[in-house]
Structures are given as structure tokens and as C-alpha cells.
Design a protein around this nucleic acid. Structure first.
Length: 470
RNA sequence: GUGGCUGUAGCUCAGUGGUAGAGUAGUGGAUUGUGGUUCCAUUGGUCGUGGGUUCGAAACCCAUCUGCCACCCCA
């Protein structure tokens, strides 16, 4: 007999886990709907031509490819097998892949269905994505993303709404978070300012490490990559603005964060005043913060110049959410991408979106013991089964209780009472109806509260009201 | 893709070359209408998989897979 197992980086979910996961999904979903987003789904498989080249070279490696059906080997020449060039061979034997995120399939969807879409189009999508990454803490090969995106609107109101949605979702879930905000245009301005406008990626990935390895090592890394000393000196004057982590930690109160943001913005404006693109980015951030302030928000929004995620397609705002009380990677992220549909032949459609990482949010809630004790999915009432006669008496009652919207079940066989009670225990069923000969004669059920142990005789026609009152 | 740690009963783990163990869960009973506490009994393992060293391997060596951790990257 072989030991059953599942592929690396995938997971089974138990009923308890699913109840908790659905709590997360439902919370996110209702917030999405509250803000006017409508749900779509796209296939797990996409054509590789849709996926390849959208996530950079690294991303292509992390794509799961699906072997062609049928005689996939037949059309490949012997020399090509012999060459053992995996990349070239892949294109011959695989034309489909599993989706890597929800944004690119969405872009494809928008272009493909543009005749049916009225802009601005606000859609949400909650589906699994797959990455052939090496699994570790908070990182899986199959995981869910919960995306909300707006396409066809350049207004910064959208960015502000997304920030409020983040605020609302994590407030409802009871997770303390910090929203980090940056803008690709400011980063471009910085690159321009130090005279290396074409090396944006090198610069951002280096300063991304600032709080990990420190200023000296960041500068050294750039020096190794061939940056000139005067460029580095100029960069230093900007790094100086980034508050060191110690200050961020000690005083992250709401007011202080907003004050810090103002200070950073003012200093950046002074330094980057000659850069047109930087000024654009700075005024975007100012406007977003202004709208958010106007509508009220409880979460700290922190300007963070080291935030450089997803540079492959973001063009404006960059958003990332960190849990304050749990050490884990970012639990949400998003941003503005001006021309994602361009690669599918539809120019000039701007989009902005966020993605909630449901699996990481699960891990965070799990560590915080933040899940509701009693799931709404759980059975509330179990009828104990004493035998044929009693079962016949209970079944219509069971039907009536269910008709009233109360999750209920009857133990399907007349097993030992101990067994049936243990069953209720292990399923955390809060109430048990004990119905034997005495109760039938009284036309009543013995209703037992499994937490307190108390029980009382309830006439059958009062059972539903009684259950609703409890 | 690179480097490190790991794997023994459903679960958590002990076992340093000489007969495969505990706790817990499961099942039966003490208690034939009362669970979550207690007591007794009992099921359950090709010691991740494949090879090697040895008279003898769960243990030592090699390979491989899984899980975890760090890097890269990311939700």
C-alpha cells in the first residue's frame, strides 16, 4: 500500500479550517460588494502565451506548465530532445499553464470582453493561484487571492477607496495592520535625480533592503553594480529622509504617522523639485491621502520609499499591508498599472487594484486566536436517536427546526448515548435534543445545553422559539 | 534556483548498532436515558522511500522525496 500524499506546497482543509477560511472570504467579499465590486471567475488554466513574459524572467520560471494532451512528444524532433534545452522544449510540449495571479487573467478578460464591459469596470475575484516556488512559512504553491480592481478610470478616488476597503476588511477581522504607500513615479524621480533614470530596478531593489542591511551595505551594493560616487552621494540625501526602523517602531501612533508623512513629502518636494515625474507622484500621494483623510480611516498609512513590489507593471501608487502583531510577509498588496491591457492590444485603459492574501491572513488570525469561537456553519442542534419509534417522532421536528433556519441533524442510527453525546462534543454542537419514551408521552423534547450541562423539558411547538431565543 | 535542518502509530514525540515505545486520539467496558472529568482493557507501525556498510540498521553512509528555515522573489 502506498502512503497517500499531496503535492509539495499544497494543503487539505478540514471542516474547522474551512469554517475559518470562509469567515475570511465572506468578510472580504461583503466589503468588496459594499464598495460596488462585482464578482467574476476565470479558468484555472490560461494559454501560456497569455501568462509568459508578464511577470519577468523569474515569474516565467515559477509558472506551472501543463503538458499537452495526446501525443505531445510526437512533434518534437530528435535533435530538440537531445539538446535538452528545457525552455525551448517547453514551448513545444506545453501550451497551457496554471494562472500565477488574478491580475493578468483579468486584463485578458477585459480585452476579450470589452464589448460587454462598461467603464469604469469594478470587479472582484476570489480564486486560487499557483506558483512553482519553494514552499516555506506563509508561502504555498497553491493559494487563494482575493482581488478587487477598477479599470477604465484614472481618478485617484479609486486608490483612496481601495485604502478604505483595506481599512474596513482588517478592522472587521480584528487585525492590526499598517498600510505602506509608495509611488512608482517618485522612485522614477529619484532615479532621474541621481542621474541613472534607466536603472530604476537596481536602485529600488537595493533601497528595499535598507532596514535589513543598513545604508552602508546598500550603497556598497550599488557601487558594485557600477553606480558613480556622485550618484550615491545624491542618493544618500534621499535615504536620509527615510525614517530608520527604530523610530517607526517606537512611535507609530496615528498622528505621528501622518506628521511623518507630511515631513517626508515636504523634504522630497524640496529635493526633487526639478523632476516632473517625481512631482506628479508626490501630488498623487498628497491627493490620495487628502481623500482618505476626508472619509476617515482608522489604519495607519505610512509613506515608505523602500516599498518596491511588483515593479514590472505598477506605474503609480504601490500599496502593501503588513500585520503589526505577527511576523509574516505582506498580507495584501496592490497598486496602479496604467497599461496592463496594452500587451493584449488594448491601449489607454488604466487599472488599479488590491489583492488580499487569504492564506496569510488565515495564518495571522490563527496566531492571534482571532477566529470567532462559534462558526455560523456549525450544527446547532443534534437529535439523539433512541430507536425506530423515537426517530419517527423526531424527523418531523427536525424538519420544522430546519425550516426555521436552524442548522440541525439527527444521529443517523440508534447508537449508544455516550457515542452520540461524544459526537456532539467533537462537532462542538451547542444543543442536544434527547427524545425518549417519556418525552414522546409529554409531547416534548429534553433540550440540553452542552456548555452548561443544564437541560429542560420543552414542548414540541415551543422548540423553534426556544432555540431562536438561545 | 542556492544553502541548512527534518521524517518513528491518525496526531505530538521518546528511542546513540542487538526483541518497536509513551502520551493522546480511536474502539470496547466500568455506566442497557446523558458528553466534555476518572479508571480498566484493546486496535494500530515495511521506523518517508531506494540502495550501501555490518553477523545484525529506526540509528551509520549515499541518493531521492516531504516538511521546516534562510537567500532570491513574493500573497
Amino acid at each position: 500500500m502506498q502512503k497517500p500524499s499531496i503535492p509539495k506546497g499544497t494543503r487539505d482543509f478540514s471542516p474547522e479550517e474551512m469554517a475559518n477560511r470562509n469567515y475570511i472570504f465572506n468578510t472580504i467579499k461583503s466589503v468588496f460588494q459594499l464598495y460596488g465590486f462585482r464578482q467574476i471567475e476565470t479558468p484555472a488554466q490560461e494559454n501560456l502565451s497569455t501568462l509568459m513574459g508578464k511577470y519577468g524572467e523569474e515569474g516565467d520560471k515559477l509558472l506551472f506548465k501543463i503538458l499537452n494532451s495526446g501525443d505531445f512528444a510526437g512533434g518534437v524532433a530528435d535533435e530538440e530532445w537531445a539538446a535538452k534545452n528545457s525552455v525551448k522544449l517547453t514551448s513545444k510540449i506545453s501550451e497551457k499553464g496554471l494562472r500565477y495571479d488574478l491580475t493578468v487573467p483579468f486584463a485578458r478578460y477585459v480585452v476579450q470582453h470589452r464589448d460587454q464591459i462598461t467603464f469604469p469596470f469594478k470587479r472582484y475575484q476570489i480564486q486560487p493561484v499557483w506558483r512553482a516556488d519553494r514552499p516555506q512559512k506563509g508561502r504555498y504553491r497553491e493559494f487563494y487571492q482575493c482581488d478587487a480592481d477598477v479599470v477604465g478610470s484614472n481618478s485617484l478616488v479609486n486608490e483612496a477607496e481601495l485604502l478604505q476597503m483595506i481599512d474596513e476588511v482588517f478592522h472587521r477581522l480584528g487585525i492590526n495592520v499598517t498600510i505602506k504607500l509608495n509611488n512608482r513615479k517618485i522612485l522614477a524621480g529619484i532615479a532621474e535625480y541621481i542621474g541613472e533614470p534607466d536603472r530604476l530596478i537596481d536602485i529600488t531593489t537595493a533601497i528595499d533592503k535598507l532596514d535589513k542591511i543598513g545604508e552602508e551595505k546598500v550603497l556598497q551594493e550599488l557601487r558594485d553594480k557600477g553606480f558613480q560616487e556622485d550618484a550615491l552621494t545624491e542618493l544618500k540625501s534621499i535615504l536620509f529622509i527615510i525614517p530608520p526602523p527604530s523610530i517607526k517602531k517606537d512611535d507609530s501612533s496615528f498622528d505621528t504617522t501622518w506628521k511623518n508623512n507630511d515631513i517626508i513629502l515636504r523634504q522630497l518636494k524640496a529635493i526633487l523639485m526639478d523632476s516632473e515625474i517625481a512631482n506628479k507622484g508626490l501630488s498623487e500621494i498628497e491627493e490620495i491621502l487628502e481623500i482618505v483623510k476626508l472619509t476617515g480611516i482608522q489604519t495607519n498609512i505610512e509613506l515608505d520609499l523602500t516599498l518596491a513590489r511588483g515593479l514590472n507593471y505598477y506605474t503609480g501608487a504601490i500599496i502593501e499591508v503588513k500585520a503589526n502583531d505577527v511576523q509574516i510577509g505582506s498580507i495584501s498588496g496592490g497598486g496602479r498599472y496604467d497599461n496592463l491591457t496594452g500587451v493584449f492590444g488594448m491601449d489607454g485603459v488604466s487599472g488599479v487594484g488590491i489583492s488580499f492574501g487569504a492564506d496569510r491572513i488565515y495564518d495571522v488570525l490563527n496566531q492571534l486566536n482571532g477566529f470567532p469561537a462559534m462558526s455560523e456553519e456549525n450544527t446547532r442542534l443534534l437529535f439523539i436517536n433512541f430507536g425506530d419509534k423515537e426517530q419517527r417522532f423526531c424527523l418531523p421536528l427536525l424538519k420544522a427546526v430546519r425550516a426555521a433556519g436552524i442548522n440541525a441533524e439527527i444521529f443517523p442510527e440508534a447508537a449508544k448515548i455516550k457515542k452520540q453525546m461524544s459526537y456532539a462534543d467533537s462537532k462542538k454542537i451547542p444543543f442536544v435534543a434527547i427524545v425518549g419514551e417519556n418525552e414522546i408521552n409529554a409531547n416534548a423534547v429534553m433540550l440540553k445545553n452542552m456548555t452548561s450541562g443544564e437541560q429542560q423539558l420543552v414542548p414540541v411547538d415551543e422548540l423553534v422559539d426556544k432555540m431562536n431565543a438561545l
